[in-house]
């Protein structure tokens, strides 16, 4: 047999293409067959679109005060009614979506990055593990929200600070998950094989262990996303989150609290958005876990 013909480029490429196609259609089939996950993803996509296109979707300026139309019930002019300063609630909730998504995504990315680094190194090095994990234990001993309030009190209410505080609070959780995933990978024979080939620790950690923990990381980050939306709303509700007059779901509810008996819409609409976002993220996360990590499936 002619050796050249065996691995001519066209054949490799065509084989690979066909294979990729099969895999992709299988993946799509799996996603479609998981209805709850489909529901979650559709809502997430919608919320993301809303966040991006907030200036287009919002009917009015969310900060524009109109004293003549305070606390109006939902109508064709103000879809969600108006608040105690006469601002259009629909536009405020839409901009609030933007705030929540920005916070959620930033927290997920930042805590994901640091959590991954800490998790991987503590899984790989026994001494580092002792130090890093004791610090994580210490941080996790405080309820996340309490810690976040403390940090916010020190830093002052600002969106950047909210992101920083939440990321800090979330890092230990992510680090724990990555560490346990990495410990499992570390025991696989191929890690021993790499050692027998003389691979360096850095190479083993970043080229071989890290890619095998990515799916766990993504699943965890969807939960982090959901939790940070809730905590951000709570912080804003308590007045230490996103500062007024910028709208966020949390501070709209806070403002609505005072008038909850006369203007139900001020608490119900932002509340519904919080529930929807968190539910969608959790459904999406569960679906991802079932798909990427078949062992945990019931």
């Amino acid at each position: 047999m002619n050796a050249k013909s065996i691995y001519s480029d066209e054949k490799i490429v065509s084989n690979q293409h066909q294979y990729n196609k099969e895999q992709r259609s299988l993946l799509i089939k799996r996603i479609l067959s998981n209805r709850l996950m489909m529901f979650g993803s559709i809502i997430l996509i919608l919320l993301t679109i809303v966040a991006f296109l907030a200036p287009v979707i919002a009917t009015q300026d969310p900060l524009a005060i109109d004293a003549s139309s305070r606390l109006q019930a939902p109508s064709s002019e103000h879809y969600f009614g108006t608040d105690n300063l006469g601002r259009d609630l629909f536009s405020r909730v839409i901009y609030g979506t933007q705030a929540s998504m920005v916070v959620g995504i930033s927290v997920a990315l930042i805590s994901g990055f640091f959590g991954m680094v800490i998790g991987l190194y503590s899984a790989y090095n026994r001494y580092l593990d002792h130090v890093l994990m004791r610090i994580c234990d210490g941080l996790m001993a405080f309820p996340a929200i309490l810690l976040a309030i403390a940090i916010m009190a020190a830093l002052g209410p600002k969106t950047v600070n909210v992101i920083a505080a939440l990321s800090f609070v979330m890092i230990p959780t992510v680090a724990r998950v990555i560490r346990s995933a990495a410990l499992v990978v570390k025991e696989q024979t191929y890690i021993e094989a790499l050692k027998s080939q003389g691979a360096s620790g850095i190479r083993i950690i970043w080229v071989h262990i890290a890619p095998n923990t990515i799916s766990q990381l993504i699943i965890q980050l969807t939960y982090v996303f959901a939790i940070s939306i809730i905590i951000e709303a709570s912080l804003s509700f308590l007045g230490v989150g996103i500062p007024a007059p910028d709208p966020s779901w949390g501070n709209i509810i806070y403002e609505g609290k005072a008038v909850i008996y006369n203007a139900w819409w001020m608490t119900v609409f932002p509340g519904m958005f919080i529930i929807l976002a968190v539910l969608a993220l959790n459904l999406f996360g569960d679906g991802l876990r079932d798909m990427l990590d078949p062992h945990s499936k019931k």
């Binding site: 696989q188 024979t189 191929y190 094989a193 027998s196 003389g198 071989h208 890619p211």
Partner: peptide, 22 residues
């Protein structure tokens, strides 16, 4: 580490001895 190239190992479990992501 340099000498390692002269002594290599073949492992028992063919399922876990290759990185599944590679």
């Amino acid at each position: 580490q340099k000498m390692r190239s002269k002594l290599q190992m073949v492992f028992q479990d063919p399922h876990s001895s290759i990185n599944p992501k590679q």
